[in-house]
Every structure is written in structure tokens, then in C-alpha cells.
């Protein structure tokens, strides 16, 4: 299981700004290791963020998203103290879900 995500969510003027830092290698599948063998691709494919049971963002990624991916987005209608749940799944089927509280 990968390391936990860091999720920051701040509500201002009715808009919640969410910043997520995930911990993932994001291997492209084009790089070679020291012995010249291709390192197999390993990257996050799907990201979903939900707030109070409603999906507020989905993302579909390829291997060109940088290592330890950063994601920032904004949505309307969140209140202080409410939770945001972010889930990702990579191309090997690994999953991770974490939650953050809106400040």
C-alpha cells in the first residue's frame, strides 16, 4: 500500500479549494534500468474526489503526470468541517483512499 495522500481543503467565499499530494512512482514504461531493461509502467489511472457523497472531480491520467502527483481543484458548496474523500487506483490495481477536512 502506498503512502497516504496529503489533502488540504480551504473554504473561502463559498468555494472550496482542494489540494492533494499523492505518493506514487508514476513510472512511464519508457525508462530503462541500469541493466538496459525497460522499467514497466506503473502509474495512477483514476482519481475520484467526493464530498458528502457527491463526486466533485474525476481524473483519468496517463504516465505523463509527474511523480508524486499534485492535484488542485475548486468546487462550490462545501462547508468548514465537512470531509472530502479522495481515491486513486493505479494500472496494477493498487488503490488508496484518504480523507481531508475542509478548513
Amino acid at each position: 500500500m502506498a503512502d497516504p495522500m496529503r489533502i488540504r481543503a480551504v473554504a473561502r467565499d463559498g468555494v472550496v479549494n482542494v489540494r492533494v499530494l499523492m505518493s506514487h512512482e508514476m513510472e512511464t514504461g519508457q525508462r530503462k534500468d541500469a541493466s538496459g531493461k525497460l522499467v514497466p509502467a506503473h502509474f495512477i489511472r483514476n482519481v475520484t474526489a467526493t464530498h458528502q457523497g457527491k463526486t466533485v472531480l474525476t481524473a483519468l491520467w496517463g504516465p505523463a503526470v509527474a511523480k508524486n502527483p499534485y492535484l488542485e481543484f475548486e468546487f462550490k458548496g462545501g462547508q468548514k468541517g465537512e470531509k472530502i474523500i479522495v481515491t486513486w487506483e493505479d494500472n496494477k490495481g493498487d488503490k488508496r483512499s484518504d480523507e481531508g477536512v475542509i478548513n
Partner: peptide, 13 residues
């Protein structure tokens, strides 16, 4: 989705 602002940021290679 509706309710989400059309404003996203990430980091790319």
C-alpha cells in the same frame, strides 16, 4: 461535475 469550478492544476512531465 456541475458545482465544480473549471479550474484544475497538476504537474506534468
Amino acid at each position: 461535475p456541475s458545482g465544480t469550478v473549471g479550474n484544475v492544476s497538476t504537474r506534468v512531465k
